[in-house]
Design a protein around this nucleic acid. Sequence first.
DNA 1: GAATTATGTCAGTACTATTGACGCAATTTC
DNA 2: GAAATTGCGTCAATAGTACTGACATAATTC
Lengths: 177, 177
Amino acid sequence: MTDRSPAAGKPIRTAITDEDGIDFAIIELFFFAYRDFTSDPDQILADYGFGRAHHRVLHFVNRRPGLTVAELLDVLKITKQSLARVLKQLIDTDHIVQLQGPRDRRQRELYPTAKGRALALALARPQSRRIRAALEDSGTNERASIERFLEAMVNPELRAQIDIVPAKISGKSHGDH
Amino acid sequence: MTDRSPAAGKPIRTAITDEDGIDFAIIELFFFAYRDFTSDPDQILADYGFGRAHHRVLHFVNRRPGLTVAELLDVLKITKQSLARVLKQLIDTDHIVQLQGPRDRRQRELYPTAKGRALALALARPQSRRIRAALEDSGTNERASIERFLEAMVNPELRAQIDIVPAKISGKSHGDH
DNA sequence: GAATTATGTCAGTACTATTGACGCAATTTC
DNA sequence: GAAATTGCGTCAATAGTACTGACATAATTC
């Protein structure tokens, strides 16, 4: 089984490199960075019997309280059926509540509970710590570059989703409770 | 079903923001960026009946021809059993060949075939195009910032994996590996 | 010869995702 | 007001990726 079967191609012994005109360096860095970026919350989630899908739902419901199921599906780019089980579990465990839409009573507006907010924060905390550490390694003003780059990596037609968030008033100490 | 059950918590109507001391802006950008970054190759892979796991294996076998199964498991951070099916399919479809290790005949060195190399390039091409476009939006010298940031996002103890690659010499003085 | 190592494989399970179909209630359209 | 559409929930069937634990084989090391 170790030998190639008769029809098999010959082994190529040289590594693919950026000379092929392709940016393997960043492709690979992006893979490693995202792998470790998600590993922090994954560990916490395991304690709850939740997975990465629960995290994403929880995140967006906290970021855009009151969004409807349809809007959530659109942001996550998954199907209704994929969302169903995950959302049900989050509701059953009292992390998220549904309210009937005020304008359209068919809609279900999704809101986090205090419990759901706390979990969202707990999951984001190690990720934020990792980001802060990475930015400290870089120069301070490079933060803007990183944000621009990441935003430019998103499909243009979907970039609107990013800016839905209320407004991330940077310097401000805020008060809208 | 629309009302919360008696014991349910009250809905929180305000969005989580960066004021909570957490960098939601970049957390979310990273999610969107990676989602779209992987969507390009996913479409191509579907034509072959392959998934993202096949892509990762193919990528690393092309990047480090001759790596052993154990090394591959270590880079991917998955289990032997998870790799088994994917690797078998790639071998059966003549994208990858195994050679008996020269020093240690128990080992299987993995190499891409011409077919495997071609597919790896085809998968990387749209990703590289996306990266190039994103970098064009930014300044040229910001490339180094991006690389530094992504590298700093990786767990320090795993950062060694990144530099295993032969040498990604650009203009970079990056000297010491 | 015995222990260890590298790999492959088996069985069972879990999570996330898919497509397609159907039902119900609310809204919109005519 | 009846009909069509929309938003949501749910059912059934399936797939891809991952896990743990166990066991077999061959090669290497002690």
